[in-house]
Design a protein around this nucleic acid. Structure first.
Lengths: 185, 185
DNA sequence: TGTACATCAGTGAACGCGCGTTCACTGATGTAC
DNA sequence: TGTACATCAGTGAACGCGCGTTCACTGATGTAC
């Protein structure tokens, strides 16, 4: 049947939102088109009215996260305290345990690296992330802002990857705590 | 036909070696049992004479890398210069471009986190890695050795993940260079 | 030492399943008159 | 305003393919005698 015209774009966005969540939770390959559509409240057959392929959905999900991340970072106060709060949040057990709502790079970085189309989107994502961090927070000097943003982000991504890969809560917390201490200096 | 008894163990090891390489290059899920067997010079049907399942091969591959990593790290001189050489190597474009021969955590950390059996193996792997680093290199003090090893390793993993996720050689090199500079202080 | 036979790792066809994708069909919406 | 009809996003069965896994078969090796 024909559906309300205004609903179509809403449904499209819901598919992207759910895809972005599921892909971060379980990886691009493990999540099926049917699962994403079900999470968006539709059946799998309608998928190809919105996207050319699963690959097209994957890249659109990555692209959609650029502005999400930008908005998220700008939520924090543009002060030293805000930067500290951002760091604390990134390195928290809450973030570690919520990959579906967390950092894209830490969740699917290696998998995305192997797919040329995703890699292109990830490049845009990372550039945008660096620029947001560099411009939003007060770094020790203008010249070193970008360097410090890159170092901070890379270190935090590594810490979350390690903390998530580990079975032992104490070891996992130790890793997060070490990185929090290292970066708060 | 019956095969020379001494060959069986050699073939088993070849399967594990090729699996460990392919899984790091392309991820656990994307690599097929047939591909691993072909790389080991056998056909896929013989696989189940060596392993109960693909999952069993995956965990054995991770376990096999514990001693490989230990041997690799101990190749470096147990001095400040040796530690520096290790850092330089880890953060080199060569390592970035050779995931199949490189760091397991940077190659498949997020994917391994989602599989309980792999996660258990990864925990052993990471513990062993930390212990090797802590005991082999001369850190500023005995008390801070473990802290510094954890911080170093997590930071380097993050840098490689980011450097690999990026399409642009300049940006990728910038990330590696930033982390080299940050850690050589 | 020589002969007969049991063993068992390796082979490749086949199975079952789940995935991405396609397609004929549906029927409320929006439009033409 | 009311009526007839074309539209097109959504549905769910179906297709084709590749994967992990199974299995009947092979035949050189190792053993029994």
């Amino acid at each position: 049947m024909r559906y309300p015209a205004a609903e179509t774009e809403k449904k499209h966005k819901r598919i992207v939102t759910q895809g972005a969540r599921l892909f971060r939770e379980r990886g691009f390959e493990d999540v099926t088109v049917g699962e994403v559509m079900k999470a968006a409240g539709l059946t799998h057959g309608a998928f190809y009215n919105h996207f050319d392929s699963k690959e097209a959905l994957m890249t659109e999900c990555v692209e959609s996260l650029c502005s999400v991340v930008d908005g998220f970072v700008r939520h924090f106060d543009p002060s030293a305290a805000g930067l500290d709060a951002y760091r604390q949040h990134y390195l928290s057990p809450t973030h570690r345990d919520s990959p579906g709502a967390g950092c894209l790079m830490a969740a699917v970085g290696p998998e995305a690296s192997r797919d040329p189309a995703l890699k292109a989107s990830m490049t845009t994502y990372l550039r945008s992330y660096f620029e947001t961090l560099t411009s939003h927070f007060p770094w020790s000097s203008k010249r070193r802002a970008r360097s410090q943003a890159i170092r901070l982000y890379a270190s935090m991504v590594g810490a979350i990857v390690l903390a998530r890969a580990v079975d032992d809560e104490d070891l996992s917390k130790e890793i997060l705590a070490e990185m929090r201490d290292a970066l708060s200096t």
